[in-house]
Design a protein around this nucleic acid. Structure first.
Ligand code: FES
Ligand code: FES
Lengths: 134, 134
DNA sequence: TACTAATGCAACCGCAAAAGTTACAGATGA
DNA sequence: TCATCTGTAACTTTTGCGGTTGCATTAGTA
């Protein structure tokens, strides 16, 4: 696959599921479709399951399906479920040598934070159903 | 450093320069301040120079300074200068097995593209001067 | 002219994150 | 009882990126 694959994989998979929300799909099917492998799929979808976006069923004839209606799943739900931060720094205390202008440093961080929030808000305005829709 | 370091480094550096726009700073000074090394700094700032945001002067007593007034440099300028794409896939033809639903695939990509554009637009609303400002 | 100090750039190293892979336990329907 | 699917852990492979070294070039300065 490529970079940023997790969000991309999640979105593509959910979009497919949006048509035929009741049909169960195995991680193997999904992996074939997405050009990756079942374990990677289960890793990503597992996060979506923990976030309550998907339901998985074990055993024979098991698989994955949407936990809600497509119109009730926003891109922000997906983004947040993956727990990545694309804009803001994944802060690790990063102490700068910038002691005198420490205020400036925090200022930069907070601006980045605002941008991140804005992104999430924007993502919240589109649902999976709309992605599929048109 | 950490993840997303290029945008972060660029923003911090420009913010510092916004106070004292005429003073020349060497990549070495900047590296010390940012906790990295001169070559990395020159790599990142080089992109900003190509984008016309910075001017570098070679030779003895050379260094870096802003090419424009801080209020005329937006975060979008910086983001675009670095030529990264945080949301949209850095498309590499990624041919999906998704032949039947090819339209859906493109749809997903275009949604991601819209989000990316929205991000850039948001970044365009803040200038370096404002970051420093307050 | 010689010396010093800076950028610009290419080539490489090393690390860490992420994908890919293998293996297997547990669950569940046939 | 068997086949099939999830859940997870452990391991390997790939890759992006910061870090490092080296050196040509440029430009002040003595
Ligand atoms: S390191 Fe000085 S502002 Fe961030
Ligand atoms: S792979 Fe099917 S929509 Fe992208």
């Amino acid at each position: 696959m490529k970079r940023n694959s997790r969000l991309s994989l999640a979105l593509h998979t959910l979009s497919h599921m949006a048509g035929g929300p009741d049909r169960l799909r195995t991680s193997s099917d999904i992996a074939d479709h997405a050009g990756t492998n079942p374990v990677v799929v289960r890793r990503v979808l597992g996060k979506l399951r923990k976030a309550g976006l998907l339901i998985s069923e074990k055993g024979h004839a098991g698989g994955w399906r949407l936990a809600r209606q497509p119109q009730d799943i926003t891109l922000a739900d997906v983004y947040l479920a993956l727990d990545e931060r694309m804009v803001a720094t994944q802060e690790k205390s990063e102490a700068p040598a910038c002691s005198v202008e420490h205020a400036l440093h925090k200022r930069v961080s907070s601006v980045l934070e605002e941008i991140e929030e804005n992104l999430v808000q924007r993502l919240g305005e589109t649902s999976i159903a709309e992605v599929r829709g048109a």
